[in-house]
């Protein structure tokens, strides 16, 4: 907890992004504490993935300022952006694994292309990453031959093999059943602790996120409506937070209302 009090690893100020006439992000400001598991919550279409892709430099924001470890990631400063890319990894919602490469080749790829390590060391580090993620028996398999959970772990192995300080997770639990959602958050928390990286997760899975995270933020209509601890989120009187929080129990109340309605058979 002591480390959370240090200067933020990532600072976002007034980030704005639109596509044509549609505004997606309208002035997002956040600070991601070093060593934390920070979750950005929000309903579908709130701009969470766009926010994360702006941070990862996949999408260029219209305006705003992003600083990593105290250094501004200005688009004219290619050295700072390259340094950021070396110290940051991105886990895509779709995993974005290379289907023409084996699991071992997928994990080796960032080391082969961005470091000057010898082939032997690259192989050792890649095998080590596969072993730590408990998929070391599948190095010769192609991603299509692995289950969904194993693909997720393979994508995480590829993300951590470069030993990043920050890992960005884009909807890591999308399309998974509740058991697997728990397992994914457990995996993030476990490996965050093991490899000592800062994790920034965007998701709409409120239950798992509030249990696993150190801090949460709620993004709604391109703005941050809440930022604080999970306890603070539970206690918040903010109407948007309340609506999002209550949406978990809304199915039960909606069904109860439907059950009390009189049957109308024509």
């Amino acid at each position: 907890m002591e480390r959370l009090k240090q200067s933020p690893l990532l600072r976002v100020e007034d980030l704005r992004k639109g596509f044509g006439d549609r505004t997606i992000l309208s002035g997002v400001s956040l600070e991601i504490p070093r060593g934390s598991l920070f979750t950005v919550l929000g309903p579908s279409g709130a701009g969470k993935s766009v926010f994360l892709k702006c941070l990862a430099d996949v999408i260029r924001p219209d305006s705003g300022r992003i600083s990593f470890d105290g250094r501004s990631l200005d688009h004219s400063d290619s050295e700072a952006r390259m340094d950021f890319r070396k110290r940051c990894s991105f886990l895509f919602q779709s995993n974005a694994l290379f289907d023409s490469l084996t699991a071992l080749e997928n994990v080796s790829l960032p080391l082969e292309q961005t470091t000057t390590l010898a082939d032997k060391e690259i192989r050792e580090r890649s095998l080590e990453a596969l072993r730590q993620l408990e998929i070391d028996g599948f190095g010769g398999h192609y991603p299509s031959q692995l289950s969904g959970g194993m693909q997720k772990r393979l994508a995480l192995a590829r993300a951590i093999v470069t030993r990043p300080e920050l890992v960005l997770f884009d909807e890591p639990t999308a399309g998974l059943d509740p058991l697997r959602r728990n397992a994914v958050f457990e995996m993030i928390a476990k490996y965050k602790r093991q490899f000592d990286f800062t994790a920034l997760v965007v998701t709409h899975d409120i239950v798992e996120a509030l249990v696993a995270s150190d801090r949460v933020a709620l993004l709604n209509e391109g703005r941050v409506c809440f930022e604080g601890t999970p306890d603070g989120f539970h206690a918040s009187g903010n109407p948007v937070v309340q609506a999002f929080r209550d949406s978990v129990g809304s199915l039960e109340s909606s069904l109860a209302a439907i059950r009390t309605e009189p049957r109308t058979i024509s």
């Binding site: 990862a56 890319r85 974005a96 289907d99 960032p110 292309q113 961005t114």
Partner: peptide
């Protein structure tokens, strides 16, 4: 077709986030 599918499935974006030169690779 191969590059189109790689673009579609975010594999090219993944390379960019890794700091790999997509043109070079």
């Amino acid at each position: 077709a191969e590059l189109g599918i790689q673009r579609n499935s975010e594999q090219i974006d993944a390379l960019e986030t890794m700091g790999v030169s997509t043109h070079g690779y």
